[in-house]
Design a protein around this nucleic acid. Structure first.
Lengths: 149, 149
DNA sequence: ATAAAAATGAGAAATATCAACATATATCAT
DNA sequence: ATGATATATGTTGATATTTCTCATTTTTAT
C-alpha cells in the first residue's frame, strides 16, 4: 500500500508544525526519515526505513534513523506497533482482557471490560485467517509520564 | 497482580493436556517455565521468566526458556504481547485502523472497520493516563500458516 | 553573520535472540 | 519395570538489534 502524494504533503506539513511546537530542530535527515515512513503504507522497521532514506541521502546513519523514529514517537507523529522499546513479552492469560499502553515508557496495564469483549469482527478478516482472539489496545500517555513534562 | 493458586492449578492441568495432544514432551523445565508465566499477572520477558524459574531450578538455561516460551506460543498456551518474533516496527498512519496478526509468522494485515472505530472506553482507563488512540488487534493463524500444518 | 544549543556520523559496546551439537530425559511398546 | 527411540536440554558461540560516546556539523535565535 502506497500513500497518495497529497496525503504525504499534508503529513509533512503537520510534521514541520509539530517539530516547531516541540522545539526540535528541523534537519534534512529528520525530514527525509519522516517522509519515508509517511509515504509507506507498510509498517517498516528501522532498518527498512534506513534503506529507503539512504537512496536519497547516502550519508545518513542508522543510528540517526533510530533516534529520529523514537523522537517522532515521543512527539506523537508516528507510533510503534507492538511492544514499545521493550523485548518480547509473554502472557498466560488467554481470557478476555485489554491493554492500556503508555507511548512514552511502554508501561502496560491490563483491564477487563465486558463492553469490549464481544466485538463484531468484520467479515473481511475471516479471509485473512482463522481468528482466535480479539482485544483492544488503548494507547496514550500514562500519568507518570504526563506529569514528568 | 498475582494469580490465585486454584487458577494456576487449572492452567497447569490444561498445559499438561495440551502438551499431550500436541505430542510435546512434558519436562520439568517446561512445567516450571509454564508455571512461572501462569502465576504472574505481569507480562514478563524471557529474561524475567528465566530469573524466576532459576530460583527453583538453578540449572535451567536461558535458551531453554526461549525455546519453551515460543513452543508454548506455538501451541496456543500463552501469547506474545506486541510484535511477535520481529523487531519494532513503525507506522505513520495515525488514523483509525486495526490489525490482524498471525500468531505463527507474525504477519500483520491492516484493515478498516467503522464498527470498531468508536468503541466506548471504560472509565477506569482514564485513571491510567491520557488516551490518544484505540485500536483492535485480532489474533489468529493466517491461511498460509494454517495450510502449512 | 554569530553564538549557543542541539543533532549527526562513525565506530564501538551492550543487549537480545537464536543455532549447533553432544548429552540427558521422557515416552511408548514390550 | 525396561530398553529403544525420538525429543529436549545445556553449553558455547554466533548473529542481529539497539544504544552509547564523542568529535564535528548544522540549525535556530539574536
Amino acid at each position: 500500500m502506497k500513500i497518495g502524494k497529497r496525503e504525504v504533503e499534508r503529513r509533512i506539513q503537520h510534521f514541520q508544525d509539530v517539530c516547531k511546537d516541540a522545539g526540535v530542530k528541523l534537519t534534512h535527515q529528520r525530514l527525509e526519515i519522516f517522509r519515508e515512513v509517511a509515504q509507506t503504507g507498510d509498517h517498516p522497521d528501522a532498518e527498512k526505513v534506513f534503506q529507503g532514506v539512504r537512496k536519497r541521502m547516502p550519508t545518513v546513519s542508522l543510528d540517526t534513523v533510530y533516534r529520529t523514529l523514537w523522537m517522532l514517537n515521543d512527539v506523537g507523529l508516528i507510533r510503534t506497533i507492538g511492544a514499545s522499546r521493550e523485548r518480547t513479552r509473554f502472557d498466560a492469560n488467554l481470557s478476555d482482557h485489554h491493554h492500556f499502553v503508555c507511548r512514552k515508557c511502554g508501561k502496560m496495564i491490563d483491564f477487563a471490560a465486558d463492553s469490549l469483549d464481544d466485538l463484531h469482527t468484520p467479515d473481511v478478516v475471516n479471509t485473512y485467517g482463522l481468528i482466535e482472539s480479539t482485544h483492544v489496545e488503548i494507547r496514550g500517555v500514562c500519568h507518570k509520564c504526563a506529569s514528568r513534562q
